[in-house]
Design a protein around this nucleic acid. Structure first.
Lengths: 163, 163
DNA sequence: AATGAGATGTTATATTGTTACATCTTTAAA
DNA sequence: TTTAAAGATGTAACAATATAACATCTCATT
């Protein structure tokens, strides 16, 4: 077994943020999309940790920034970022998390810790294939697949649940 | 290939409803849970078709029934029904659908047609296994798995999309 | 400089879900 | 059979999430 995934161990998180922003710039440039200051700022905020952030959390920070933003501002930025594969929405949490595979077209899977809320994004070809086969067996044409697994991450499952 | 699944073809839907209610009664009886009139009525409404229903849709029908219900009434009934595995919440739709495997403990998968909104619930062991392996590879302990696949059902994919 | 597309501002509102507390019903014990 | 306790429901208010509609601004290109 290899060591744990990045979000599960101490790491230089500013490197994650920096990488994410840098990826975003190149993705947008390649596709002639405008990574405006608001959009970039929202992406940066979403990346402030590996825990997903709600739209209104983002809004609150923008307010602290002195930016007098209303909900549509945030939702538009998030829509844009989703559209270019820079963030994902976690449906079971109504929250958003930075995409760790920016630019790559992929079906992903989220491991969501219910204790520390950390989210790990994986691409699991075996899962994707199994899903594709199951769909096909029903003559269903899949377009968007959501796979969200709630449970305990390695750090939290080694401690007694503090609830 | 076998013929399509029940929700995809004409069928005597009242038989589905009848079966669901009957299953619910036995599940509740076995577990000493009280399937009260409200709970049973909500279950019946959820089963009115194979398309998921929002909590406020249920509420509206209860109002037509002459039942002066408020949101907590519906959410409590839905919570109860979920707890006993009689309905599922579809996170990507904020809506609820009848469980077609009542009583069986299972990880399920939903095929959600974006055109007609019909939902087909499947149990796909290959998918579950792949998910379990992916989790294990990250030392993650899964508890709840959500798999929702949006796309076109066989009926709707054979027609041009009318959007 | 003029135009038009895209981006943002602004106000209001829609939709979904919860809190908190009062009241009623059922169960089962005293 | 009363009585307590647990569970279920009623009720009002509100919190959290998301969108509609329209005005204004910015920027790239003419």
């Amino acid at each position: 077994m290899s060591s744990s995934a990045i979000p599960y161990r101490p790491h230089n998180h500013s490197a994650c943020v920096h990488q994410a922003l840098s990826d975003a710039r190149s993705v947008c440039q390649r596709q002639n999309a405008r990574l405006t200051p608001i959009r970039e700022r929202v992406l940066e905020l979403i990346w402030q940790s590996h825990k997903p952030l709600g739209a209104y959390d983002v809004l609150a920070v923008l307010a602290e920034d002195g930016h007098n933003a209303a909900p549509p501002t945030v939702y538009r930025a998030l829509d844009f970022l989703q559209q270019y594969g820079l963030v994902h929405r976690i449906a079971s949490l109504n929250a958003f998390t930075g995409c760790t595979h920016a630019g790559e077209h992929h079906t992903c899977l989220f491991l969501i810790c219910r204790a520390c809320r950390t989210v790990l994004e994986l691409t699991a070809p075996a899962v994707s294939d199994a899903v594709a086969k199951a769909s096909q067996a029903e003559a269903f044409t899949p377009e968007e697949t959501i796979i969200e697994i709630a449970g305990l991450c390695p750090n939290c499952s080694s401690e007694p649940t503090h609830e």
